[in-house]
Computed example of a mutant assay.
Amino acid sequence: MSPELEKTLAGCKTVAAKIRALDAAGYPRAEIARLLGKRYQHVRNVLEEPGPPKLATTEPLAMAMEGMAEADAAFFQYTPPHTYFLSVGANGSVVLPPEVLKALGARPGGLIIADLEDERFTLVSGKAGIQLMKARLAQPPPPGALASLELIEERRREAAIEELEAQMDEAGLRRDD
């Protein structure tokens, strides 16, 4: 097994987890089957199985995951509602659940705004993101700032807003003016 393949499969405890990791790394299904010594149908079944299982209980997360392999527990929702555990693929991608995409009004080619603050990453709809960005960029500069720097910053804010609005228009999202 190549070092790259070993690195991709590191931490995968189950065959299903290995199949998902190789798929996320871009390996074709037939190649995954050959590498793992499994039938193509097995690989297909793992990759085509329905969405994440839901846990309808209020028991602590540690108890909910008891007996589950770590990689198999990456995709499920638990109580309280609207909290998700999302698996990060080998290429760094994260798949959002359909109900999250629906709530954000995201559709193929659409726009979602992300905000990183400290250790918190927040996703908002394109429309809400534009409003947040306008509010953030409209804040006055600190006292004692040079007028020339203030003018340059104002032009940058306007350009950023125009760029976001252009992206919204391209994505087919409406804005409220």
Rank of each mutant, 00 (worst) to 15 (best):
L101Q: 11
T79Y: 15
G92I: 02
H82T: 05
D115P: 00
P143H: 07
F85E: 10
A30V: 05
S125Q: 05
G105A: 05
G126D: 05
I19N: 02
P52L: 12
L36S: 02
L96H: 08
R120W: 01
T122S: 13
L116V: 09
V95P: 00
E31I: 02
M133F: 09
T14W: 02
E66F: 12
D118M: 08
Q41T: 04
M63W: 12
F76W: 12
P143S: 07
P81Q: 11
A62V: 14
E119T: 11
V46E: 04
Y40H: 04
L132P: 00
F76S: 13
V88Y: 05
K134E: 15
A33K: 05
D23K: 09
T83S: 11
Q41S: 13
S125W: 07
P81W: 03
P98G: 01
A25W: 03
V124Y: 02
M65R: 15
D72G: 02
P141D: 13
R136C: 09
A62H: 13
Y27A: 09
R120F: 03
L22V: 02
G37A: 06
A147Q: 12
A71W: 00
G129M: 01
V46A: 01
V88T: 12
L22I: 03
P53R: 13
D72V: 01
T57N: 08
E119G: 02
A103I: 03
L137C: 11
P60V: 11
P80R: 11
V46H: 01
P108D: 13
L123Q: 05
A138E: 13
A25K: 04
L149S: 12
F75Q: 13
L101E: 12
R107A: 15
S148Y: 07
P50V: 05
L55F: 15
D23H: 15
G105W: 06
T83Y: 10
R120G: 00
D115T: 08
L123R: 04
L86G: 09
T79L: 15
G126I: 02
A128R: 13
A69M: 01
P81D: 11
L36I: 03
N45S: 03
L111F: 08
I32C: 04
A21N: 02
V100Q: 07
D23N: 12
A17Y: 00
K18D: 04
L137I: 07
P140I: 08
Y78F: 15
L116I: 09
M133G: 03
S87P: 00
G110K: 07
L36Y: 06
A69S: 09
Y84L: 09
A62S: 13
T79S: 15
Y78G: 12
E49R: 15
A17M: 04
P108F: 08
A21M: 01
A64P: 00
L146V: 01
L36R: 03
P97F: 10
P98S: 10
V94F: 06
R136A: 14
E99A: 10
R29G: 05
G110E: 08
V95Q: 14
A135D: 14
S125M: 07
K38N: 03
F85N: 13
R20W: 03
A114M: 14
D72S: 06
P98H: 05
A33H: 04
A21C: 04
Q139T: 13
L111E: 08
I32D: 01
P142M: 10
V124W: 01
P97I: 05
V43F: 03
E117T: 14
A74Q: 12
K127I: 10
N45W: 00
P50K: 13
